[in-house]
Amino acid sequence: MGLTRQGVLIVLVVCVVGLLASGALSAPAWQPNRPVEWTVPAGTGGGADQQARLMAPLIEKYRLSPQPFIPVNRPAGAGAQAFLWMIDKTGDPHTILITLDSLFATPAAQVLRKRDGSRFTWRDLTPIARLLLDHFVLWVHAESPYRTLDDFVRAAKAGPPGRLKMAGTGSKQEDEIIMVLLEQAWGAKFTYVPFPGGGAVAAALVGKQVDFTVNNPIEAVGHWEAGRVRPLAIFASERVRVGRWAEIPTMRELGYPIEYQMLRGIFGPPQMPAEAVAFYQEVFRRVLDTPEMADFIERGAYTKAYLTGREYVQWLERKDALVRSLMERAGWLVR
């Protein structure tokens, strides 16, 4: 071997410098030095809560953060309490929020004032990352006469207004917004019965209390497997290519270009330092790649939709415009 001492030395130096450099590159500029408080703007047991409580232990298990993430529920007022809490935490790098569409609907349906008297919007918060998109599926009872969406549309148009009843979660939130979309597309009128949670909504359909729901996949999958409910269409841009979910046609395919997906995203308080934002983006990017999350995404027919930066903000703007225009048409917008 023709390696000289000098050559060995050079190789060693290069290695050490390389190691140092890579170490410096992989160590993020900012790391939490205390537990991260992860606000959930809904009660225990709901979709957002489920996801936070699934991801928090994964962050620990895969050592993605030197400090634990602690989900804390602030359920009051369909997110109102949680949003204003985030405003109070301005600049705090140890506070994050997981959101659902109440981030758009709640500030549109009620005037939420910050301490300085101005009105709260999601733009006050620091967008960190979009994680998942949750789908909506039009479900009817398995014993109902509606085998296809066409059957259903015919029934909706035929009957006296309000004959078909729909159960949904809460009021003036995503489920009812979708119902209004359907009403406008079909020129029909439905009766909306609000329930406190997705599980109760699915049960109301299974128990034939109502005629249809737009449950998220994970809320209804058990009943579907048991053959008690039937999906007619999914409100997604394209079919969900996972397992049985691929069977469900999209609304667009069936001739009604109606799309609606729910945001599962992460936000920080106003003026969160950029280094902290970068840290959380990295954490959540890696959480989404864990095998447990992959499994969860598949079972719940979620769409993995990691997005950050300017594209995320643009997407949020479009989403906000959509929700506001729908709420305006339904007459729920409060100025």
Binding site: G43, G45, D49, G199, V206, G222, E225, D295, F296
Partner: peptide, 28 residues
Amino acid sequence: TLGIPGSPTAAVMLAGFFIWGLNPGPLL
């Protein structure tokens, strides 16, 4: 049996079902 929580505590346990990879329902 149905995936409907009968109490707030049951609602949290139900969240656990999804986390553990189980679907509540008659087939369980």
